[in-house]
Design a binder for these strands. Structure first.
Lengths: 339, 339
DNA sequence: CCTCCCTTGTGAAACGTTTCATGCAGTGAC
DNA sequence: GTCACTGCATGAAACGTTTCACAAGGGAGG
């Protein structure tokens, strides 16, 4: 019943030594085909399953990489996951997904576990970016790490990011063009780099040309956005991500405020649901899957040349997608077409 | 640089035997406090990190459970993940999330890996439910498995599910009440149990009272729904999940068909974005987080009493949430309230 | 017939833990 | 002064692999 069959049993059953069984598993070309078949048969008959712990122990490291995301629930990250998985699959590596939930404690614990497991490398959008965070330790001890969606000032690691400053600027310029004079940035906490950068971006674009206020949220969720809506008193809102934007949209609508006639909204990420929202959401689009793919490719590359390795920083350009939530209001419904 | 320090180094540094170091780690109360401190110091000085492979090898199994979902990208499953994580965290167990992407091959490979890793147990919404699937093997060899969102006819495992038959029926009855005579079910592939059951549910409710057709999709995504919209020719649509429903909504709108005036839509899952859609979506709500929590609790329970264990089947009741997409059309925009 | 090489297979060491039986001092009771 | 404990620490075995140096057998070339 329980998994008690090891390579040893298989060897006995096939009448060979354990070394031979191991060879069948790892370098089958070294084994005479008749013997190989005998071993293979024994394996299926016994239902033998390799014990990865033993294998790893011997090898000194696992064959997995980890992806630590800020919030599994955010479609932005699930798309990053997909990209990473696709790239990893091509290389025969497995991705284990961890969710920090924007909580430094959980992030810390995940990294503990991952290091104990000797993962080959880590893709992460960190919560805790302090100079001697758990992540820093991990890097110092030699685990390859690629920062995702986060430019790294330092050069001790690779990073893949989207230019959030530019993203914020695009949003700002767009809203200025639409003639807005009072703009509110909604997002938080400010400990998250993206939030700071996106804010800095719009602040930059808007400086001297319009008034910019901030409504801070405890996290980047729909619920937080909905709550924030109560405090909004401006003609345009730029949200740190689409979840918040969706929440703000709901909150404003509930207050009887029309979007975009009374208040315009611009979100960030351009998740799939942004286009399908009650009022289709203008949003700053990031190449989410691409982000995951590239990050994974870079990580695997770093793992390969485990000797010297040049850390690289890839920065993608975001793109503003204008939809109804910040455009000139149009007729919502196309004319009915006969049925 | 690389992770070369083991318990042995620590022992040398602290001037004790390796057995003692191990005791400090696992049963600190057995060690005199002065020695303990010396060991602890050595550990931090050397930056020692436990090697989990060795630990597992000795123990015979890991300390993780796995959750294999059909689609990480589907908010329904990310909520299940959250529930599972919450429950697992309370027990000090780690959850590793795997994504089968509705692909039997990937599911198979994930299970291979998981078994090699000797995970303690598996939570899974299977793609492949054939009687001698990879999953069946896993169970037979003794790994505890709990089926998620899937009632299991057989009694060789626990399951947590929502009554999909009832869910389908609720949707059907609702649409009949609204006076619909031609209803289309959109979803697929039929190999997925949920799809079949939800279809069976509405077929049951509608039998003899209205005409029910089916538009089959290759998977349950927004894109699939959008494509399916082209083939819809009925006054009401019931979708196998909210992603499909959102897609159908987009597709219909694009064809100039108004929802709900021309065609009503009911989705399934009641994901967060359903309420925020262009036309707020009626949907059959499932207790998604609860599903994850309960499944995890049951799995852990089964792992505990590893002797005899009564397999249980928990079934939750779904609830129909009626919103605008299937209700009597109302004014979309509330009157503007002064600002 | 001897040598050399090639193909197959072997057995033991090593990976880093945990666990368990055992050892060794002290201590208090008699 | 002896005995039985108690409290701490030790060393070795075991977990299931992979790897590596080496051995056995056979065929080819001389």
């Amino acid at each position: 019943m329980s998994n008690t069959t090891g390579i040893k049993e298989v060897a006995r059953r096939a009448g060979v030594s354990i070394g031979t069984v191991s060879n069948v598993l790892n370098r089958p070309e070294l084994v005479a085909s008749s013997t190989r078949q005998r071993v293979l048969d024994a394996i299926t008959e016994l239902g033998y399953v390799r014990n990865d712990s033993a294998r790893q122990l011997r090898a000194g490291h696992s064959r997995q990489i980890a992806l630590v995301v800020l919030d599994v629930t955010n479609p932005f990250f699930t798309d990053v996951v997909r990209g990473a998985e696709a790239a990893a699959e091509e290389h025969g590596v497995m991705v284990v997904v961890c969710n920090s939930g924007e909580d430094a404690g959980r992030e810390h614990r995940h990294l503990d576990l991952l290091e104990e497991q000797r993962v080959r490398g880590v893709l992460i959008t960190p919560v805790d970016e302090s100079p001697n965070s758990r992540l820093e330790q991990l890097i110092q001890r030699g685990t390859p790490v690629v920062l995702v969606d986060r430019g790294s000032g330092r050069h001790s690691r690779c990073s893949v990011a989207v230019d959030d400053l530019l993203g914020g600027r695009l949003a700002g310029e767009h809203l200025l063009e639409q003639g807005h004079q009072r703009i509110t940035f909604v997002g938080g906490p400010a400990t998250i780099t993206q939030v700071r950068e996106r804010h800095a971006g719009i602040a930059d674009a808007v400086a001297g040309k319009a008034e910019l206020s901030v409504v801070s949220t405890p996290n980047l969720t729909v619920a937080a956005g909905r709550a924030a809506a109560a405090e909004i008193d401006a003609t345009a809102v730029f949200c740190a991500n689409d979840l918040v934007a969706l929440g703000v949209l709901q909150g404003l609508t509930q207050r009887g405020i029309r979007v975009p006639q009374d208040v315009a909204i611009v979100g960030y990420d351009d998740i799939e649901f942004a286009a399908a929202a009650a009022v289709p959401l203008s949003s700053v689009r990031q190449p989410r899957e691409q982000l995951g793919r590239t990050a994974t490719a870079m990580l695997l590359e770093e793992i390969e040349d485990d000797g010297r390795h040049e850390h690289r920083h890839v920065v993608f350009q975001p793109e503003l997608i204008v939809r109804e939530s910040s455009g000139r209001p149009r007729t919502r419904r196309p004319r009915r077409i006969g049925r």
